[in-house]
């Protein structure tokens, strides 16, 4: 692997598991120093150790703005920001607990906005922000109203910030994953509900399979390294949204 990210500092939220971990590993293998930030301290440290010397774990709860501020205040420079910290709440609109729906938005939407808010002053020209939304932004996914809305919110934020931050030389893009099998996203679905969901995907998705975290990481790597792409929402979904 060519070390084209040598000397770059990448902050990856949700970097302990799944997509965030795969991205952190990919960036580290290209020479970047990666800062893994998520809530679970133990898992975060295990993840950093397995990536090696290039990785540092800084436990951070992204729904707590003070913690987000502290994370970025401690860094002198951020070249790449990837925000993958996530959770999911499923439920019919008349039964989904409102407080849970609200806290989902706070963690996953405002967490990503807060990360950008505190990271941007540390980002030199040539930096890049990669948000994480999801294809629920553009397909009607039943029993996922709050989650779908936040994915749409992230996409809109991506477009706005791409234009706003371009004069500073900061690119802003989003990855919009379809169903990725090896994540550790906390959701309230039962095992049976999840299995039904996965088997329905094999019918809907042109590639007839679910995706893997490292396939999302490759897309993130492309966005981090292609200097003329900004405002792009790249679906990594096997063709789900195209069909």
């Amino acid at each position: 692997m060519e070390e084209i990210l040598r000397g770059k500092v990448a902050v990856v939220t949700g970097g302990a598991t799944g997509i965030g971990y795969a991205i952190a590993k990919r960036f580290a293998s290209a020479g970047a120093k990666v800062i893994l930030a998520s809530r679970q301290q133990q898992r975060l440290e295990t993840a950093a150790q397995s990536i090696g010397e290039a990785a540092v774990a800084i436990p951070t709860d992204f729904s707590d703005f003070k913690q987000v501020q502290r994370l970025f205040e401690g860094l002198s420079q951020v070249d790449i920001l990837v925000t993958c910290a996530g959770a999911a709440i499923f439920g019919a609109v008349d039964t989904v607990p409102m407080e849970q729906a609200k806290s989902l938005f706070e963690g996953r939407f405002f967490g990503q906005l807060a990360a950008a808010h505190y990271a941007v002053p540390k980002m030199p020209p040539g930096s890049v922000i990669i948000f994480c939304s999801g294809i629920a932004a553009s397909v009607g996914l039943p029993y996922y109203s709050a989650g779908s809305a936040l994915c749409g919110a992230v996409n809109s934020m991506t477009r706005a910030l791409a234009v706003e931050l371009a004069p500073k030389g900061i690119r802003v893009n989003a990855i919009s994953p379809g169903y990725i099998e090896d994540t550790d996203i906390q959701s309230n679905l039962s095992k049976e509900q999840l299995e039904n969901f996965v088997s329905s995907i094999k019918v809907t998705v042109p590639l007839q399979r679910s995706g893997k975290s490292n396939e999302v990481a490759s897309a993130a790597f492309f966005l981090a390294t292609c200097g003329y792409v900004t405002g792009q929402i790249i679906e990594v979904d096997g063709g789900w949204t195209a069909s």
């Binding site: 396939e215 490759s218 897309a219 492309f222 405002g231 679906e235 096997g238 063709g239």
Partner: peptide, 11 residues
């Protein structure tokens, strides 16, 4: 690198 990317329009 794009093995799960299908049907997109990349700007």
């Amino acid at each position: 690198d794009s093995s799960f990317v299908n049907g997109i329009e990349l700007f």
